[in-house]
Design a protein around this nucleic acid. Structure first.
Length: 589
RNA sequence: GGAGCCGUGGUGUAGUUGGUUAACACGUCGGCCUGUCACGCCGAAGAUCGCGAGUUCGAGUCUCGUCGGUUCCGCCA
């Protein structure tokens, strides 16, 4: 029964095996039937090798079997590895110097004609690929990314294990918390009318593990959020979740950047210089107009407000009077932009919330601009100097409140960077963003909301701002950014009961309300809580970047669509009335 | 919740100002073929143009709705 079993992988075949008898198992990738000889490209997860089916070697009966082979048949072939004949080497194949001369063929499984070509599946309609995900998974592209994901996880685990972190699982059926993202909820049969929630992250449990004395914890944890999706958001996704005790912010960042550096070296062979640069939130917004700046190209934001305080031009004068700012970017070489292109940029800026976009095209002997005539020579020169403008450049200015202006310019900068091909695809630019705002005012709710979560510690020097000026308080929080994508974020947690109460007060909670929601958690802090902090990384996003993909669907074996459906298993689905009855659930309509 | 793009044999695409036999490539099936590697040659089958209304003498094409996929904004402590 075992004579068909594999002795080697297809992709490993090469010169060193010549003369050996091997058995390979795999799928028929392609078949080339020349009549009295049939070539089959045999595929397994390691790669492809050419096998030769020759009636003189196989005998008539086995050759008749070979003639039945079709794409995606699963077969076992035994035979001798041979050098390819003179001039028949295929330089495009890793295994192209050799071929297997088959003496024994077994068809392990026949296959219907697949709904799309496995070897060029990436162009096929996404819904079809998702319905037949198991076929798409056979493609080289997905095999490579899923294996890359495995190596990434393996590198993470080996690093963290080496640093004394313990892999501990936390519950999937937990309690719903009203703050944050929408929960996926699961009805309880034993407690009719009550529901579990699926975790948005293991946040509270990992802190309880610290209080439980485990000191260093990690988990490759599945998280669930019932929010609208994007290319880089799935309803269930995976975090590398880490927490550690008796540490400050520096400790967490040092250990975690060493982990990412280790992963990049192991998986991509990329060497990263440490320490990884750190930018305050304020500086990131100021220079790049983003809390996750892509630093693979320049085009940094400049501020020209101070040169225009006396301006006669209405837009500038109004901005200065309102305490607003006038800021801009320099599109190097952008003087070649057509009016139409510039108008499109204006439309984008307005769509992002700007009042308008002012522009100056620096041409050989003149400045082309609809507003140049309103500015003095000195003002024009100061703007050029501030933004480092040379002949051939295009300067873009936006006036308004600092945060809005910065954000608009940040997004224009990113769009232009992509459009103009300024981004080097081979770079891995890592960056810590620190000193985040602790609280953000929510107009809708009419109160401050935790920017990160309510257990994030403020900077020591900002503690009194909790009462004096909550919006100014900064957090002991940190985000790691890779090529303009937020890879992960975390913080040092509040472990002082008094401070936690002040935090809740700043959020507009009474202690009663806080205890209602987080009572078990707050109680735990009364029994000896070590100082601790941690971080969580988006594994899917990390692998997506390493694989140079633009959607995390490509790095998840069985992803969902943008409407949170699984087209293969057809989930979600209706359930039988009997199940609903057991749960005491009735449906409206 | 909002905006954009896509949907035509199994797959990828073409299809002119609305005009009568919906084209091409790959794949599939049959035949031929002993060194191919995107094998080649000959032949064949295969489409209610996502679905439903409407406009029109006539709709793949125009309009509205709807379903699915996708991208972005809101949302994602």
């Amino acid at each position: 029964m075992t004579e068909w079993k594999r002795t080697h992988y297809c992709g490993d075949m090469g010169k060193t095996y010549v003369g050996q008898t091997v058995t390979l198992n795999g799928w028929v990738n392609r078949r080339r039937d020349l009549g009295q000889v049939i070539f089959v490209d045999l595929r397994d997860r390691s790669g492809i090798v050419q096998v030769v089916l020759d009636p003189e070697v196989l005998g008539p009966e086995q050759f008749a079997l070979a003639e039945r082979l079709r794409s995606e048949y699963v077969i076992s072939v035994q035979g001798k590895v041979m050098d390819r004949p003179e001039g028949q080497v295929n330089v495009n194949m890793k295994t192209g110097e050799v071929e297997l001369h088959v003496s024994k063929l077994v068809i392990l499984s026949e296959a219907k004609t697949p709904p799309f070509h496995i070897h060029q599946a990436d162009d096929v309609d996404e819904s079809l690929r998702l319905k037949y995900r198991y076929l798409h998974l056979r493609s080289k592209e997905l095999q490579d990314t899923i294996m890359l994901r495995h190596r990434t996880v393996a590198a993470v685990r080996s690093y963290l294990d080496g640093q004394g972190f313990l892999d501990i699982e936390t519950p999937i059926l937990i309690r719903s918390t009203p703050e944050g993202a929408r929960d996926y909820i699961v009805p309880s049969r034993v407690h009719p009318g009550e529901f579990y929630a699926l975790p948005q992250s293991p946040q509270l449990f990992k802190q309880l593990l610290m209080i439980g004395g485990f000191d260093r914890y990690y988990q490759i944890a599945r998280c669930f959020r019932d929010e609208d999706l994007r290319a880089e958001r799935q309803p269930e996704f995976t975090q590398i979740d880490v927490e550690m005790s008796f540490v400050d912010r520096e400790d967490v960042m040092n250990i975690m950047e060493a982990m990412i550096v280790h992963v990049l070296a192991e998986v991509k062979g990329v060497k990263i210089d440490t320490p990884i640069p750190r930018l305050s939130y304020q500086e990131a917004m100021d220079r790049f107009g983003s809390d996750k700046p892509d630093t693979r190209f320049g085009m940094e934001i400049g501020d020209v407000t101070k040169h225009l305080t006396q301006s006669e031009f209405r837009v500038f004068a109004d901005a200065v009077r309102a305490g607003h700012v006038i800021r801009g970017i320099n599109v190097k070489g952008g003087a070649t932009f057509t009016r139409r292109q510039i108008d499109q940029l204006s439309e984008q800026a307005v769509a992002m919330g700007a009042k308008g976009l002012m522009w100056f095209s620096l041409e050989e002997n003149q400045v082309r601009s609809p507003i140049a005539k309103f500015l003095s020579d000195a003002e024009m020169q100061a703007i050029q100097a501030e933004l480092d403008g040379d002949v051939g450049d295009l300067l873009l200015l936006v006036a308004g409140p600092w945060d809005l202006v910065s954000e608009v310019l940040g997004r224009l900068r990113l769009a232009l960077g992509k459009e103009l091909g300024l981004i080097d695809d081979d770079l891995y630019n890592l960056l810590w963003v620190v000193d985040w705002p602790l609280l953000v005012y929510d107009e809708e709710a009419g109160r401050y909301m935790a920017a990160h979560h309510p257990f994030t510690a403020p900077l020591d020097e900002d503690i009194d701002l909790l009462e004096q000026d909550p919006g100014k308080a900064r957090a002991k929080a940190y985000d790691l950014v890779l090529n303009g994508v937020e890879l992960g974020g975390g913080s040092i947690r509040i472990t002082d009961r008094k401070l936690q109460e002040r935090m809740f007060a700043a959020l507009g909670f009474t202690m009663e309300e806080a205890h209602d929601q987080f009572g078990y958690f707050l109680e735990a802090f009364e029994y000896g809580a070590p100082p601790h902090g941690g971080i969580a990384f988006g594994l899917d996003r990390l692998v997506m970047l390493l694989a140079k993909r633009s959607s995390i669907r490509d790095v998840i074996a069985f992803p969902k669509t943008i409407s949170a459906s699984d087209l293969m298993i057809e989930a979600p689905s209706r359930v039988h009335q009997k199940q609903l009855d057991e749960l005491k659930i009735s449906l409206k309509d």
